[in-house]
């Protein structure tokens, strides 16, 4: 058992937590402004597919990363318009985007690369395995600073808590929410791009496999606050790292350790926290409510 807990495990944890940190902090902007972002999963898929495709053609991961960000912003703008302009149910709109992004990459990739949903391998020298990891840990204080120390952050939080009051104080609720949702698209796009051009070297169908939802869970587990959310991401990244390390490891009795029980830890923890057993996790007050100016 000793060999499992090593330096390698720490590095593995950091790398596995990275996409979660990007996506959950993206979700934080959106949700603190009052827009539920269940679409994180789909946005990550958009980022992952676009980054892998563009990196393959351009031969440069930075161009790929920028393209991944652009794709995240583009997809999240659909969510933003549906929720803010058309007052759509935010959960329903998010689910639509998730379904869209299971189908669309495979649909486009099928014709671009003549394969069912995966992009070609990207050579190793064109990957960015570590830079997004460092940047993720800069993102956390940056998010904290923006949300709690700038007028923009104050307005964003106000819009998510009491939109009427913010409106009365002259803040444009819609503008704040649009920018928050687009920021969340950019950040989740980085998280997705890191999956395809950082952690692995190609895009495969539905490669996020629930990481968008885990990011959402981390956001709730971290009570919609930057540092706590980062810690939640590290915890969830750690459980994933352990579950990978334990594959094929056998107990002295000769039985292997069921992976499934380690995989469900983040989900069980989130349910427990949401029920209020480990401190209160309170959502922004105006979350999920479309705002209409009184006439």
């Amino acid at each position: 058992m000793r060999s499992i807990f090593s330096i390698a495990l720490i590095f593995s944890t950091l790398r596995l937590a990275t996409p979660l940190i990007w996506a959950s902090h993206g979700g934080m902007f959106s949700e603190r402004s009052g827009v539920i972002n269940i679409a994180l999963e789909g946005i990550m898929l958009a980022g992952a597919f676009t980054a892998a495709s563009v990196t393959f053609y351009a031969g440069n991961p930075w161009i790929g990363l920028v393209a991944g960000i652009a794709a995240g912003v583009a997809i999240s703008s659909i969510h933003a318009v549906a929720c803010i302009r058309f007052n759509a149910n935010q959960v329903v709109s998010g689910m639509a985007i998730n379904i869209l992004m299971i189908g669309l990459p495979a649909f486009l990739g099928g014709s671009l690369f003549a394969s069912t949903g995966s992009t070609p391998q990207i050579p190793k020298e064109n990957l960015i395995p570590w830079t997004p990891v460092f940047l993720a840990f800069l993102l956390v204080p940056a998010t904290w600073y923006v949300l709690y120390r700038t007028p923009f952050g104050l307005r964003l939080r106000a819009v998510g808590e009491k939109p009427e009051a913010a409106d009365a104080a002259g803040v444009s609720v819609k503008l704040m929410r649009y920018s928050a949702v687009l920021i969340s698209g950019a950040l989740a796009g980085v998280g997705g791009a890191y999956l395809s051009i950082g952690q692995s070297s190609l895009f495969t169908r539905n490669m996020t496999s629930g990481r968008g939802f885990i990011s959402l869970a981390a956001l709730i587990f971290g009570k919609w606050r930057p540092v706590q959310t980062m810690l939640a991401c590290l915890l969830f990244g750690f459980t994933e790292a352990v579950s990978i390390q334990l594959q094929g490891v056998r107990l002295p009795s000769g039985e292997d350790i069921p992976n499934q029980f380690i995989q469900i830890i983040p989900y069980v923890l989130t349910i427990i926290v949401l029920a209020g057993f480990i401190g209160q996790s309170r959502a922004p007050r105006a979350i999920g409510l479309p705002y209409q100016k009184e006439r």
Partner: peptide, 21 residues
């Protein structure tokens, strides 16, 4: 590819979701 079906589904949901407006 048959993934077209998922794209159609998603667009249907988005449109119906915006219906209230």
């Amino acid at each position: 590819s048959k993934d077209l079906v998922e794209v159609l589904q998603a667009v249907v949901i988005l449109f119906v979701a915006c219906e209230a407006f």
